[in-house]
Design a protein around this nucleic acid. Structure first.
Lengths: 118, 118
DNA sequence: TGTCTATATTGACGAGCATCGATGTTCGGG
DNA sequence: CCCGAACATCGATGCTCGTCAATATAGACA
């Protein structure tokens, strides 16, 4: 690891490998937050769940709407829904014996904007 | 790609829980692609790497620029760089003994746009 | 040639995660 | 008040992944 910082880069080939900065990078805590949010969507099943929920009127669907298309067991579907809830992508409203999951408006745009600023 | 009606569907006639659709949801193969790309960024270390690379002039940095701030072993840094390369976020150009990693222009915007269309 | 330096690859270990069956909980209807 | 339906939680399992030490590779220089 070369210690050549604060070095005028008139000649790149002869200088050390380290280039100067143009802005400040993200801090570790911020990176942890971004990664935790992205991890919630970094699963094909959960991407499908968000898409299916968003495809329904009112961007809302219950578990029975998901279990068929996904072809997974009910506990597994419930698990994914919980992950998406804790990440802030879905909300749950129980009506009768059914649990309706709705897409949080702007949650996808929010993480998309976050990506552009990284 | 259109979803076949091969899976046992719960009785929708009597059940009031299932809402109609407004559009077609993402197909499983597309969800797999989106998830695989997001998984590359779903790690705090890799988010920091992308940010550090983007912070340098020319959005380019070598491994020695990363090893210090990240505080990880050299093989681990190389491993993350490889993951980000295979996901299409970084490119590598070797000059001398140093390997320079550069941000692929528009790669972050591309995945951000993908998220909005899910 | 040989050595030194920067980086890549390998192998292994431990933590985390997706999945399931079994069980618990809550609500509606008889 | 009990039974069934919808959903959540628990415990276990197999697989993926992040990490490191050791080793390999490749270029620069004497």
């Amino acid at each position: 690891m070369p210690v050549a910082e604060l070095l005028p880069i008139t000649d790149v080939s002869a200088a050390a490998c380290c280039a100067p900065l143009t802005k400040e990078a993200i801090d570790p805590a911020g990176a942890e937050t971004v990664a935790r949010t992205l991890k919630a969507l970094a699963d094909p099943t959960r991407v499908r769940i968000v898409s299916i929920v968003a495809s329904h009127v009112g961007q809302e669907a219950c578990v029975c709407d998901l279990q068929g298309p996904l072809g997974l067991s009910q506990p597994t579907v419930s698990h994914h829904l919980k992950v998406l809830m804790e990440a802030g992508f879905l909300t749950r409203s129980k009506r009768g014996t059914w649990a309706y999951y709705a897409l949080v408006p702007g949650s996808l745009d929010k993480i998309a904007d976050l990506l552009r600023t990284v």
